[in-house]
Nucleic acid binder design. Structure first.
Lengths: 199, 199
DNA sequence: AAAAAACTGGACTTGTGGGTCCATTTTCGC
DNA sequence: GCGAAAATGGACCCACAAGTCCAGTTTTTT
Protein backbone atom coordinates (compact mmCIF):
# COMPACT_ATOMS: atom_id res chain seq x y z
CA UNK A 1 0.00 0.00 0.00
CA UNK A 2 2.08 2.81 -1.35
CA UNK A 3 1.45 6.29 -0.05
CA UNK A 4 0.47 8.95 -2.46
CA UNK A 5 2.17 12.32 -2.25
CA UNK A 6 -0.77 13.78 -0.42
CA UNK A 7 -0.96 10.77 1.85
CA UNK A 8 2.64 11.07 2.90
CA UNK A 9 2.14 14.75 3.66
CA UNK A 10 -0.89 14.02 5.80
CA UNK A 11 0.86 11.30 7.67
CA UNK A 12 3.74 13.60 8.37
CA UNK A 13 1.38 16.34 9.48
CA UNK A 14 -0.19 13.95 11.94
CA UNK A 15 3.12 12.90 13.44
CA UNK A 16 4.33 16.44 13.83
CA UNK A 17 1.05 17.63 15.23
CA UNK A 18 0.98 14.78 17.69
CA UNK A 19 4.52 15.54 18.79
CA UNK A 20 3.65 19.14 19.29
CA UNK A 21 0.49 18.40 21.26
CA UNK A 22 2.42 15.97 23.34
CA UNK A 23 4.81 18.65 24.42
CA UNK A 24 1.87 20.77 25.42
CA UNK A 25 -0.17 18.18 27.26
CA UNK A 26 2.14 15.36 28.10
CA UNK A 27 1.44 11.82 26.99
CA UNK A 28 -0.83 11.05 29.89
CA UNK A 29 -3.57 13.37 28.79
CA UNK A 30 -2.96 13.40 25.08
CA UNK A 31 -6.03 12.10 23.31
CA UNK A 32 -6.48 11.22 19.70
CA UNK A 33 -9.08 13.94 19.43
CA UNK A 34 -6.47 16.47 20.46
CA UNK A 35 -4.32 15.34 17.60
CA UNK A 36 -7.19 15.44 15.15
CA UNK A 37 -8.23 18.90 16.17
CA UNK A 38 -4.67 20.13 15.99
CA UNK A 39 -3.98 18.67 12.58
CA UNK A 40 -7.39 19.13 11.05
CA UNK A 41 -7.79 15.48 10.20
CA UNK A 42 -10.40 12.87 10.96
CA UNK A 43 -10.33 9.63 12.85
CA UNK A 44 -10.50 7.56 9.73
CA UNK A 45 -7.37 9.21 8.42
CA UNK A 46 -5.47 8.59 11.58
CA UNK A 47 -6.38 4.94 11.61
CA UNK A 48 -5.72 4.75 7.93
CA UNK A 49 -2.10 5.73 8.45
CA UNK A 50 -1.67 4.10 11.82
CA UNK A 51 -3.70 0.91 11.79
CA UNK A 52 -2.19 0.03 15.12
CA UNK A 53 -3.94 3.00 16.69
CA UNK A 54 -2.53 5.15 19.40
CA UNK A 55 0.38 2.86 20.17
CA UNK A 56 1.59 2.97 16.62
CA UNK A 57 1.23 6.71 16.51
CA UNK A 58 3.17 7.18 19.71
CA UNK A 59 5.89 5.00 18.37
CA UNK A 60 6.11 7.14 15.26
CA UNK A 61 6.31 10.22 17.42
CA UNK A 62 9.07 8.64 19.47
CA UNK A 63 11.07 7.95 16.35
CA UNK A 64 10.50 11.46 15.13
CA UNK A 65 11.66 12.97 18.40
CA UNK A 66 14.61 10.65 18.72
CA UNK A 67 15.96 11.73 15.38
CA UNK A 68 15.72 15.33 16.50
CA UNK A 69 17.66 14.80 19.68
CA UNK A 70 20.87 13.84 17.96
CA UNK A 71 20.27 16.20 15.08
CA UNK A 72 20.15 19.16 17.42
CA UNK A 73 23.63 18.35 18.66
CA UNK A 74 25.20 18.44 15.26
CA UNK A 75 27.65 19.17 13.85
CA UNK A 76 29.61 19.19 17.10
CA UNK A 77 28.59 15.75 18.31
CA UNK A 78 30.04 14.07 15.25
CA UNK A 79 33.30 15.95 15.40
CA UNK A 80 34.48 16.02 18.98
CA UNK A 81 38.09 16.36 17.96
CA UNK A 82 39.22 19.40 19.90
CA UNK A 83 38.53 20.76 23.35
CA UNK A 84 36.78 23.69 21.84
CA UNK A 85 34.45 21.33 20.00
CA UNK A 86 33.70 19.60 23.28
CA UNK A 87 32.95 22.90 24.90
CA UNK A 88 30.67 24.04 22.17
CA UNK A 89 28.90 20.68 22.16
CA UNK A 90 28.39 21.06 25.89
CA UNK A 91 26.88 24.48 25.38
CA UNK A 92 24.62 23.23 22.66
CA UNK A 93 23.22 20.47 24.82
CA UNK A 94 22.48 22.85 27.65
CA UNK A 95 20.95 25.29 25.24
CA UNK A 96 18.77 22.66 23.66
CA UNK A 97 17.23 21.65 26.94
CA UNK A 98 16.92 25.19 28.11
CA UNK A 99 14.84 25.93 25.05
CA UNK A 100 12.82 22.78 25.31
CA UNK A 101 11.80 23.64 28.82
CA UNK A 102 10.71 21.15 31.39
CA UNK A 103 9.09 18.52 29.22
CA UNK A 104 10.70 15.66 27.45
CA UNK A 105 8.48 13.92 24.97
CA UNK A 106 10.74 10.94 24.74
CA UNK A 107 10.91 10.30 28.42
CA UNK A 108 7.18 10.77 28.50
CA UNK A 109 6.59 8.16 25.83
CA UNK A 110 8.75 5.77 27.73
CA UNK A 111 6.57 6.25 30.77
CA UNK A 112 3.71 5.03 28.63
CA UNK A 113 5.24 1.58 28.62
CA UNK A 114 2.33 -0.52 27.61
CA UNK A 115 1.95 -2.74 24.65
CA UNK A 116 4.19 -0.24 22.89
CA UNK A 117 6.77 -1.17 25.39
CA UNK A 118 9.09 -3.20 23.25
CA UNK A 119 8.95 -0.89 20.30
CA UNK A 120 9.52 2.25 22.32
CA UNK A 121 12.31 0.62 24.23
CA UNK A 122 14.01 -0.28 20.99
CA UNK A 123 13.83 3.29 19.75
CA UNK A 124 15.35 4.70 22.89
CA UNK A 125 17.94 1.97 23.07
CA UNK A 126 19.01 2.80 19.57
CA UNK A 127 19.21 6.47 20.45
CA UNK A 128 21.42 5.75 23.42
CA UNK A 129 23.63 3.50 21.37
CA UNK A 130 24.24 6.11 18.72
CA UNK A 131 24.78 8.87 21.21
CA UNK A 132 27.22 6.83 23.22
CA UNK A 133 28.98 5.81 20.04
CA UNK A 134 29.57 9.40 19.03
CA UNK A 135 30.90 10.27 22.45
CA UNK A 136 33.23 7.30 22.45
CA UNK A 137 34.48 8.25 19.01
CA UNK A 138 35.19 11.74 20.30
CA UNK A 139 37.15 10.37 23.21
CA UNK A 140 39.21 8.16 20.95
CA UNK A 141 39.88 11.02 18.65
CA UNK A 142 41.24 13.05 21.55
CA UNK A 143 43.31 10.11 22.65
CA UNK A 144 44.87 9.83 19.23
CA UNK A 145 45.93 13.44 19.61
CA UNK A 146 47.45 12.74 22.97
CA UNK A 147 44.96 14.97 24.72
CA UNK A 148 43.43 12.16 26.72
CA UNK A 149 45.34 9.38 28.37
CA UNK A 150 45.26 6.20 26.31
CA UNK A 151 44.62 4.19 29.47
CA UNK A 152 41.09 5.51 29.71
CA UNK A 153 38.42 3.16 28.46
CA UNK A 154 36.59 5.19 25.83
CA UNK A 155 33.33 3.23 26.00
CA UNK A 156 33.24 3.44 29.72
CA UNK A 157 33.88 7.15 29.67
CA UNK A 158 31.12 7.59 27.12
CA UNK A 159 28.74 5.59 29.28
CA UNK A 160 29.41 7.74 32.31
CA UNK A 161 29.02 10.92 30.34
CA UNK A 162 25.80 9.76 28.75
CA UNK A 163 24.43 8.80 32.14
CA UNK A 164 25.29 12.22 33.47
CA UNK A 165 23.56 13.94 30.62
CA UNK A 166 20.46 11.80 30.90
CA UNK A 167 20.29 12.33 34.61
CA UNK A 168 20.81 16.03 34.20
CA UNK A 169 17.97 16.22 31.74
CA UNK A 170 15.73 14.12 33.96
CA UNK A 171 16.37 16.35 36.94
CA UNK A 172 15.73 19.34 34.77
CA UNK A 173 12.30 17.94 34.03
CA UNK A 174 11.21 17.92 37.62
CA UNK A 175 13.13 20.80 39.12
CA UNK A 176 13.31 23.10 36.16
CA UNK A 177 16.93 23.76 36.92
CA UNK A 178 19.82 23.10 34.57
CA UNK A 179 22.44 23.08 37.29
CA UNK A 180 22.69 19.32 37.39
CA UNK A 181 23.05 18.96 33.67
CA UNK A 182 25.78 21.56 33.64
CA UNK A 183 27.59 20.03 36.57
CA UNK A 184 27.49 16.60 34.96
CA UNK A 185 28.76 17.87 31.65
CA UNK A 186 31.50 20.00 33.14
CA UNK A 187 32.78 17.38 35.51
CA UNK A 188 32.51 14.69 32.88
CA UNK A 189 34.63 16.67 30.48
CA UNK A 190 37.04 17.75 33.17
CA UNK A 191 37.46 14.12 34.10
CA UNK A 192 38.54 13.37 30.57
CA UNK A 193 41.10 16.16 30.50
CA UNK A 194 42.70 15.39 33.77
CA UNK A 195 45.60 12.93 33.76
CA UNK A 196 45.06 9.70 35.62
CA UNK A 197 46.61 9.38 39.03
CA UNK A 198 49.68 7.15 38.99
CA UNK A 199 47.85 4.65 41.17
CA UNK B 1 -11.04 13.24 61.07
CA UNK B 2 -8.77 11.03 63.08
CA UNK B 3 -8.09 7.53 61.85
CA UNK B 4 -8.81 4.58 64.06
CA UNK B 5 -6.25 1.87 64.42
CA UNK B 6 -8.06 -0.26 61.91
CA UNK B 7 -8.52 2.64 59.54
CA UNK B 8 -4.84 3.47 59.54
CA UNK B 9 -4.01 -0.15 58.84
CA UNK B 10 -6.40 -0.25 55.92
CA UNK B 11 -5.03 2.94 54.50
CA UNK B 12 -1.53 1.63 54.76
CA UNK B 13 -2.55 -1.64 53.16
CA UNK B 14 -3.98 0.28 50.23
CA UNK B 15 -0.84 2.33 49.70
CA UNK B 16 1.43 -0.68 49.84
CA UNK B 17 -0.81 -2.73 47.62
CA UNK B 18 -1.02 0.08 45.11
CA UNK B 19 2.76 0.44 45.11
CA UNK B 20 3.15 -3.23 44.55
CA UNK B 21 0.62 -3.39 41.73
CA UNK B 22 2.27 -0.41 40.17
CA UNK B 23 5.54 -2.22 39.93
CA UNK B 24 3.77 -5.06 38.25
CA UNK B 25 1.66 -3.13 35.80
CA UNK B 26 3.17 0.29 35.50
CA UNK B 27 1.19 3.42 36.21
CA UNK B 28 -0.29 3.60 32.73
CA UNK B 29 -2.40 0.52 33.11
CA UNK B 30 -2.90 0.50 36.83
CA UNK B 31 -6.59 0.74 37.63
CA UNK B 32 -8.28 1.33 40.92
CA UNK B 33 -9.93 -2.05 40.58
CA UNK B 34 -6.52 -3.65 40.44
CA UNK B 35 -5.71 -2.05 43.73
CA UNK B 36 -8.99 -3.10 45.27
CA UNK B 37 -8.62 -6.67 44.15
CA UNK B 38 -5.06 -6.80 45.41
CA UNK B 39 -5.84 -5.33 48.80
CA UNK B 40 -9.26 -6.84 49.33
CA UNK B 41 -10.93 -3.51 49.82
CA UNK B 42 -13.84 -1.75 48.21
CA UNK B 43 -14.26 1.46 46.30
CA UNK B 44 -15.89 3.25 49.16
CA UNK B 45 -12.91 2.52 51.36
CA UNK B 46 -10.49 3.80 48.83
CA UNK B 47 -12.37 7.03 48.38
CA UNK B 48 -12.85 7.26 52.08
CA UNK B 49 -9.13 7.40 52.65
CA UNK B 50 -8.27 9.23 49.45
CA UNK B 51 -11.06 11.68 48.76
CA UNK B 52 -8.99 13.11 45.96
CA UNK B 53 -9.26 9.81 44.11
CA UNK B 54 -6.56 8.31 42.00
CA UNK B 55 -4.36 11.36 41.98
CA UNK B 56 -4.22 11.49 45.71
CA UNK B 57 -3.50 7.80 45.92
CA UNK B 58 -0.68 8.05 43.42
CA UNK B 59 0.79 10.88 45.37
CA UNK B 60 0.72 8.80 48.52
CA UNK B 61 2.42 5.99 46.66
CA UNK B 62 5.06 8.39 45.42
CA UNK B 63 5.79 9.53 48.95
CA UNK B 64 5.94 5.95 50.11
CA UNK B 65 8.37 4.98 47.40
CA UNK B 66 10.48 8.07 47.84
CA UNK B 67 11.05 7.31 51.48
CA UNK B 68 12.20 3.85 50.52
CA UNK B 69 14.75 5.05 48.01
CA UNK B 70 16.90 6.82 50.56
CA UNK B 71 16.18 4.26 53.24
CA UNK B 72 17.61 1.51 51.10
CA UNK B 73 20.91 3.34 50.90
CA UNK B 74 21.35 3.56 54.61
CA UNK B 75 23.34 3.52 56.71
CA UNK B 76 26.11 4.21 54.21
CA UNK B 77 24.55 7.26 52.60
CA UNK B 78 24.48 9.14 55.88
CA UNK B 79 28.03 8.31 56.79
CA UNK B 80 30.16 8.74 53.71
CA UNK B 81 33.25 9.42 55.78
CA UNK B 82 35.74 6.93 54.40
CA UNK B 83 36.52 5.59 50.96
CA UNK B 84 35.33 2.21 52.01
CA UNK B 85 31.99 3.70 52.97
CA UNK B 86 31.78 5.28 49.54
CA UNK B 87 32.55 1.99 47.92
CA UNK B 88 29.99 0.11 49.90
CA UNK B 89 27.41 2.80 49.23
CA UNK B 90 28.16 2.46 45.55
CA UNK B 91 27.63 -1.28 45.74
CA UNK B 92 24.39 -0.85 47.61
CA UNK B 93 22.96 1.47 45.00
CA UNK B 94 23.83 -0.88 42.18
CA UNK B 95 22.41 -3.78 44.13
CA UNK B 96 19.20 -1.98 44.87
CA UNK B 97 18.49 -1.31 41.25
CA UNK B 98 19.57 -4.73 40.19
CA UNK B 99 16.99 -6.18 42.53
CA UNK B 100 14.31 -3.76 41.54
CA UNK B 101 14.65 -4.71 37.93
CA UNK B 102 13.70 -2.52 35.05
CA UNK B 103 10.79 -0.62 36.55
CA UNK B 104 10.91 2.50 38.59
CA UNK B 105 7.66 3.41 40.27
CA UNK B 106 8.77 6.91 40.98
CA UNK B 107 9.80 7.70 37.49
CA UNK B 108 6.56 6.16 36.37
CA UNK B 109 4.49 8.36 38.64
CA UNK B 110 6.32 11.34 37.32
CA UNK B 111 5.30 10.38 33.83
CA UNK B 112 1.71 10.60 35.01
CA UNK B 113 2.09 14.36 35.35
CA UNK B 114 -1.46 15.51 35.39
CA UNK B 115 -3.27 17.46 38.00
CA UNK B 116 -1.02 15.64 40.43
CA UNK B 117 1.79 17.34 38.68
CA UNK B 118 2.74 19.88 41.27
CA UNK B 119 2.43 17.50 44.18
CA UNK B 120 4.44 14.78 42.54
CA UNK B 121 7.09 17.23 41.45
CA UNK B 122 7.42 18.44 45.00
CA UNK B 123 7.91 14.93 46.30
CA UNK B 124 10.64 14.18 43.81
CA UNK B 125 12.26 17.54 44.27
CA UNK B 126 12.44 16.91 47.98
CA UNK B 127 13.95 13.50 47.35
CA UNK B 128 16.63 14.96 45.12
CA UNK B 129 17.39 17.67 47.65
CA UNK B 130 17.90 15.24 50.48
CA UNK B 131 19.92 12.87 48.37
CA UNK B 132 22.17 15.61 47.11
CA UNK B 133 22.53 16.97 50.62
CA UNK B 134 23.80 13.65 51.91
CA UNK B 135 26.28 13.36 49.08
CA UNK B 136 27.54 16.87 49.63
CA UNK B 137 27.93 16.18 53.33
CA UNK B 138 29.95 13.10 52.47
CA UNK B 139 32.22 15.11 50.22
CA UNK B 140 32.78 17.73 52.88
CA UNK B 141 33.53 15.06 55.40
CA UNK B 142 36.23 13.66 53.14
CA UNK B 143 37.59 17.13 52.56
CA UNK B 144 37.90 17.69 56.27
CA UNK B 145 40.02 14.57 56.40
CA UNK B 146 42.21 15.82 53.60
CA UNK B 147 41.08 13.03 51.28
CA UNK B 148 39.48 15.37 48.80
CA UNK B 149 40.90 18.68 47.66
CA UNK B 150 39.31 21.58 49.45
CA UNK B 151 39.09 23.46 46.17
CA UNK B 152 36.33 21.19 44.95
CA UNK B 153 32.84 22.59 45.26
CA UNK B 154 30.98 20.02 47.30
CA UNK B 155 27.50 20.94 46.11
CA UNK B 156 28.61 20.90 42.52
CA UNK B 157 30.24 17.53 42.95
CA UNK B 158 27.10 16.20 44.58
CA UNK B 159 25.00 17.51 41.72
CA UNK B 160 27.13 15.80 39.13
CA UNK B 161 27.11 12.55 41.05
CA UNK B 162 23.37 12.65 41.54
CA UNK B 163 22.85 13.33 37.86
CA UNK B 164 25.03 10.36 37.00
CA UNK B 165 23.09 8.08 39.29
CA UNK B 166 19.73 9.24 38.00
CA UNK B 167 20.83 8.85 34.44
CA UNK B 168 22.26 5.44 35.14
CA UNK B 169 19.00 4.33 36.65
CA UNK B 170 17.03 5.79 33.79
CA UNK B 171 19.14 3.99 31.23
CA UNK B 172 18.78 0.83 33.24
CA UNK B 173 15.03 1.13 32.87
CA UNK B 174 15.11 1.02 29.12
CA UNK B 175 18.13 -1.10 28.39
CA UNK B 176 18.08 -3.40 31.37
CA UNK B 177 21.79 -2.93 31.74
CA UNK B 178 23.52 -1.58 34.81
CA UNK B 179 26.71 -0.67 32.98
CA UNK B 180 25.88 3.00 32.81
CA UNK B 181 25.00 3.27 36.45
CA UNK B 182 28.23 1.57 37.39
CA UNK B 183 30.30 3.71 35.08
CA UNK B 184 28.74 6.89 36.41
CA UNK B 185 29.28 5.90 40.02
CA UNK B 186 32.82 4.71 39.51
CA UNK B 187 33.94 7.70 37.52
CA UNK B 188 32.14 10.08 39.81
CA UNK B 189 33.93 8.69 42.83
CA UNK B 190 37.22 8.48 41.03
CA UNK B 191 36.84 12.11 40.10
CA UNK B 192 36.55 12.99 43.75
CA UNK B 193 39.66 11.06 44.71
CA UNK B 194 41.87 12.40 42.03
CA UNK B 195 43.80 15.57 42.78
CA UNK B 196 42.95 18.57 40.66
CA UNK B 197 45.30 19.44 37.83
CA UNK B 198 47.46 22.44 38.53
CA UNK B 199 45.78 24.29 35.68
C1' DA C 1 -24.22 0.38 77.11
C1' DA C 2 -25.52 3.61 74.03
C1' DA C 3 -24.60 7.20 70.90
C1' DA C 4 -21.41 9.04 67.68
C1' DA C 5 -18.02 8.56 64.58
C1' DA C 6 -15.41 5.86 61.73
C1' DC C 7 -15.42 2.11 58.59
C1' DT C 8 -17.06 -1.13 54.90
C1' DG C 9 -19.71 -3.40 50.86
C1' DG C 10 -21.13 -3.18 46.54
C1' DA C 11 -24.49 -1.63 43.21
C1' DC C 12 -24.96 2.23 40.20
C1' DT C 13 -23.93 6.30 37.11
C1' DT C 14 -21.36 8.64 33.80
C1' DG C 15 -17.97 10.66 30.83
C1' DT C 16 -14.66 9.75 27.79
C1' DG C 17 -11.59 8.14 24.59
C1' DG C 18 -10.09 4.37 21.56
C1' DG C 19 -11.59 2.09 17.74
C1' DT C 20 -15.06 0.74 13.69
C1' DC C 21 -17.81 1.53 9.39
C1' DC C 22 -19.17 3.08 5.19
C1' DA C 23 -20.30 6.50 1.91
C1' DT C 24 -17.94 10.02 -0.78
C1' DT C 25 -14.16 12.41 -2.92
C1' DT C 26 -9.53 12.84 -4.62
C1' DT C 27 -5.34 11.16 -6.59
C1' DC C 28 -2.65 8.24 -9.55
C1' DG C 29 -1.15 5.05 -13.31
C1' DC C 30 -2.03 4.10 -17.97
C1' DG D 1 -10.22 10.51 -19.29
C1' DC D 2 -11.10 6.31 -16.90
C1' DG D 3 -10.92 2.86 -13.55
C1' DA D 4 -8.58 1.37 -9.38
C1' DA D 5 -6.56 2.50 -5.34
C1' DA D 6 -5.84 5.73 -1.90
C1' DA D 7 -7.67 9.48 1.00
C1' DT D 8 -11.25 11.68 3.69
C1' DG D 9 -15.46 12.94 6.71
C1' DG D 10 -17.98 12.03 10.35
C1' DA D 11 -21.45 9.38 12.61
C1' DC D 12 -21.51 5.47 15.54
C1' DC D 13 -20.32 1.89 19.08
C1' DC D 14 -18.72 0.25 23.27
C1' DA D 15 -15.70 -1.06 26.94
C1' DC D 16 -13.95 0.45 30.90
C1' DA D 17 -12.46 2.83 34.69
C1' DA D 18 -13.24 6.83 37.74
C1' DG D 19 -16.21 8.42 40.84
C1' DT D 20 -21.03 8.49 43.65
C1' DC D 21 -24.39 6.83 47.00
C1' DC D 22 -26.39 4.84 50.72
C1' DA D 23 -27.43 1.29 53.63
C1' DG D 24 -25.26 -1.51 57.08
C1' DT D 25 -21.41 -2.83 60.41
C1' DT D 26 -17.72 -2.11 63.49
C1' DT D 27 -15.05 0.62 66.47
C1' DT D 28 -14.39 4.34 69.67
C1' DT D 29 -15.78 7.45 73.23
C1' DT D 30 -18.06 8.87 77.39
Amino acid sequence: MPLTRKGAATRQRIVEGAASEMRRLGVFSLTLDDVLRRTGTSKSQLFHYFPGGKDELLLAVARYEASGVLGDQQPELSALNSWSAWRSWRDKVVERYRDQGPNCPLNAVMGQLGPTSEGARAVVRELYAQWQGELAAGIRSMQSQGEIEPALDAERGARALLAGVQGGVLIHLTTGSLEHLEAALDQGIEFLRRPRAQA
